[in-house]
Design a protein around this nucleic acid. Structure first.
Length: 789
RNA sequence: GCCAUGGUGGCGGAAUGGUAGACGCAGCGGUCUUAAAAACCGCAGCCUGUAAUGGGCGUGCGGGUUCGACUCCCGCCCGUGGCACCA
């Protein structure tokens, strides 16, 4: 038995004091490798085994890369702004600045206890004025480029958090953080114009190596739709209502037009006779939450607006309705009603007795698929191809166009613990201007009552909000920035975190970026990753970075479930503490077990019994030192170790850590059956095991092998190709596809020899007498297959 | 509904179209021990057979391609995640 507690502590201390994992300078000639974890929010509760799982994988990659001669940047920091610290402060009275620092220190200790090889000299904290000064700078950059703006409109409001939320932070009609049902409010807020980048965000996703499901979520979220704007001119008015449709081939089936209840033109165009009915209808739906409107109330409701428009081709007069099933925020807020070919229109038309005309053959509500146009004027009997749709659009005086589901990113928050928005206005005016750059950072005041009231705590802190500058009194913007703004550029700061006069050092960024391997949870697919890509593109356009995508390769770690196959949570009592596991089994067993459990990107349950198997494996490696006394290696030993090196190397590269560990187990089991092995083989074994079990191998490296340097920085062993192939091969011998026997042959045996031997195999011979061999298939090293009739 | 992803022993899982179940857990048998634990050695998908180098079945279901399919193709079922009155 080896003493894991002593060994863990000893090597962790050595790595920290000797700065073993310091990042090489940008002048280092070795190829660079930037391996990044999604940095955590340092919460008050301790880390469980699932939190650390993602960091295990990136750590193995970073450690392997170092040993393979790469200059590695592997940093860690804290996404420290955000609601939990503020809520904790409200409950306990401890200032967020203080609790955040304490939590970060506790996290650092725990990450070090797991043996993670971060360069702690590069630690960053987004709530540090040194950092958020540059988050504010970034805001101002977007403002100057016309990409940050204020707008009044309906926004998502979380009644519990007492703040607005971005669309991405509303999940299933609920607040992403506290699961409270989100309501709609009409407020003036700050936005980033991410919609300007919708097409580029779709296009460039093809250039990165990310899991397909993450790419799909992003494409889905951006939601590109090709279609047409079709103008419907208003009767007795010069105005035009423009509808968006993806199906101009159904234009001749339009029997009415629907305008969203919130649409601005509705008030302007509606005749006096109908205004009261419209107002009543609006009041009715305004009372309901988005959730009720979309999920609970499936029945479509609407009223006739009294407005009449002309069909752009037939010039037939059509009624305009307003209805709750049409959204103001998508397309033009106006849709054409085609009851014969749209399920929603069908339901609505049936309820209100609106006419329906069939204009396509085949399935009425087919979303895709070829159909022939019917009763469609000059277009009758044409196929509903894109060409036909574009031709109809042209005749109707419309335009072919593209619409996105993506909305602009709402970045202002009515909370305290975030970066203040660096804008001001002269008191009594609403003339917004940038806070002069030399006055950045706009620091958060420490002496503010931050109880949430629905407006920003900073708004009532007059001693902070109002200030004199050059004889003029200004009032500051009192909202803070969404914490996702802070995390949308931190990977740039890591390249040179101590640069003082700029957000990031362009030379360092040019050297280290883009991130070669980014590891984190899939829950950020539509938020952080989208925002970070957007900000990177803005910085590219500004000429500040020479790349368009920040994360070249992305991998998601799967979730670790409790032993009961349920998501770990305090209330279920199935949380496995990382600290306790490390204390009991040691950091090396913990690390190796987590990565052995299964595929890295899949979720899998923790097994309290399974971990002992990994501990046994490490004990076997420990015990193997007794056998490392052979003067020369035999063929078997050479095959075993070289096959292990080759397999482990490729498996790590492919982030298949579980099979890498299985290969080492096989190798160790087989080496244990040898009478003795060489020190050379033992040394190579320790080297390939080091990324997984760094403390343990470091100890053996020094005490048994007598090295003075660090195993963690030693050179990765190379493979001797001569020993990759075994001397003998086992052939399966098949009759009509069924294996009827096996034969062992020399690897270099010829086809003739193998086939002859196969025919002599006892059981095979029996089957061969049953008929004629009409065909023989030979797969070198694997199979001989006879087709017998 | 659309998009993505998965379905293999008692359990976690492994398998460039080539002996399905590697590796590990749990289990069973043995060695050692007064005994137990630990460690070590062995067995181990299911059914069948006195036996084996035997036979049959077997990777969610139904078809297909192939000498040969967990793997490729077609059609389904179920689980998970994302989006959704998006026109």
């Amino acid at each position: 038995m080896y003493n894991h507690q002593e060994i863990d502590a000893q090597w962790q201390n050595a790595w920290v004091s000797q700065k073993t994992f310091a990042t090489p300078s940008a002048a280092d000639p070795r190829p660079k490798m930037y391996i990044l974890d999604m940095f955590p929010y340092p919460s008050g509760s301790g880390l469980h085994v699932g939190h650390l799982f993602g960091y295990m994988g990136s750590d193995v990659l970073a450690r392997t890369a170092r040993m393979q001669g790469k200059a590695v940047l592997h940093p860690m920091g804290w996404d420290a702004f955000g609601l939990p610290a503020e809520n904790f402060a409200i409950k306990t009275g401890v200032h967020p600045a203080l609790s955040t620092k304490q939590n970060a220190a506790a996290y650092r200790t725990q990450l070090q206890a797991a043996g993670l090889s971060y360069d702690w000299d590069r630690e960053i904290d987004t709530s540090d004025p040194e950092y958020y000064k540059w988050t504010q700078w970034l805001f101002q950059l977007l403002y100057k480029r016309g990409l940050a703006y204020r707008k009044e409109g309906l926004v998502n409001w979380c009644p519990k958090c007492q703040t607005v939320l971005a669309n991405e932070q509303v999940v299933g009609g609920q607040c992403e953080r506290c699961q409270t049902v989100v309501i709609q409010r009409n407020l003036e807020q700050w936005y980033f114009k991410i919609t300007d980048y919708a097409q580029r965000l779709i296009d460039d996703i093809e250039t990165v190596d990310w899991p397909e499901r993450i790419k799909a979520i992003q494409r889905n979220w951006i939601g590109r739709s090709e279609g047409a704007h079709i103008p419907f001119s208003v009767v007795n008015d010069t105005k035009v209502l423009t509808a968006f449709t993806t199906r101009p081939d159904t234009l001749f089936g339009v029997s009415y037009v629907v305008i969203a209840p919130e649409h601005q033109l509705l008030d302007t165009l509606a005749p006096e006779s109908h205004k009261e009915a419209i107002a009543t209808f609006r009041a009715q739906i305004a009372q309901e939450t988005e959730l009720e409107r979309t999920q609970l109330v499936q029945e479509k409701r609407g009223v006739d607006t009294g407005i009449r428009v002309l069909h752009p081709i037939t010039k037939q007069e059509l009624p305009v309705w307003t209805a709750d099933y049409v959204l103001a925020t998508y397309g033009t807020g106006v849709v054409m009603g085609v009851p014969a070919h749209d399920e929603r229109d069908a339901a609505f038309a049936e309820k209100y007795g609106l006419p329906s005309t069939v204009v396509l053959d085949g399935e009425p509500f087919a979303h895709a698929g070829a159909a022939t146009l019917l009763a469609s004027g000059d277009f009758t009997s044409k196929q509903n191809t894109k060409e036909t749709m574009q031709a109809i659009t042209k005749v109707a005086g419309g335009e072919w166009t593209i619409t996105y589901r993506l909305r602009d990113w709402l970045v202002s928050r009515q909370r305290f613990w975030g970066a203040p928005i660096p804008m001001r206005s002269e008191v009594g005016t609403r003339n917004l201007e940038l806070v002069p750059s030399e006055q950045l950072p706009v620091e958060l005041p420490m002496d503010v009552d931050f109880l949430p009231t629905g407006q920003s705590p900073l708004a009532v802190a007059d001693h902070w909000r109002l200030y004199e500058d050059g004889g003029t009194t200004y009032e500051r913007e009192a909202d803070t920035l969404d914490t996702f703004v802070c995390s949308s550029w931190y990977f740039l700061r890591f390249c040179n975190p101590h640069t003082h006069d700029q957000a990031f050092d362009p030379e360092a960024v040019k050297h280290w970026m883009p991130v070669d391997m980014y590891i984190g949870g899939a829950e950020h697919a539509a938020m952080h990753l989208l925002y970070a890509r957007f900000i990177t593109k803005v910085l590219f356009d500004e000429g500040l970075v020479p790349f368009k995508e920040p994360f070249q390769t992305l991998r998601n770690q799967g979730m670790i479930l409790g032993p009961d196959h349920q998501k770990m949570s305090k209330s279920k009592g199935n949380v496995i503490s990382a600290a306790e596991t490390i204390a009991e089994y040691g950091a090396d067993t913990f690390r190796t077990y987590e990565l052995f459990m299964g595929p890295y990107d899949q979720e899998k349950p923790w097994s309290t019994t399974g971990i002992v198997g990994v501990r046994r494996f490490l004990e076997k490696v420990w015990a193997l030192q007794e056998k490392a006394v052979a003067p020369v290696a035999d063929e078997t030993e050479l095959h075993l170790i070289n096959q292990a090196i080759a397999a482990v190397t490729t498996e790590i590269e492919a982030t298949r850590f579980n099979t890498a560990i299985a290969k080492m187990m096989e190798c160790v089991n087989a080496l244990g059956k040898q009478f003795a092995i060489t020190r050379d083989t033992y040394e190579k074994l320790l080297l390939i095991l080091n990324p997984f079990a760094p403390h343990f191998t470091e100890e053996l490296w020094h005490t048994v092998l007598g090295h003075a340097d660090m195993c963690s920085l030693a050179e990765w062993p190379s493979v001797d190709e001569r020993y990759l192939q075994s001397a003998a091969a086992t052939y399966a011998v098949q009759i009509n596809g069924k294996t009827r026997g096996t034969i062992s042959m020399a690897t270099d045996a010829s086809e003739t020899e193998v086939v002859a031997a196969a025919k002599e195999e006892q059981n095979v011979a029996r089957y061969l007498t049953e008929g004629e061999v009409v065909k023989t298939i030979f797969v070198p090293g694997r199979v001989v297959s006879f087709v017998v009739k």
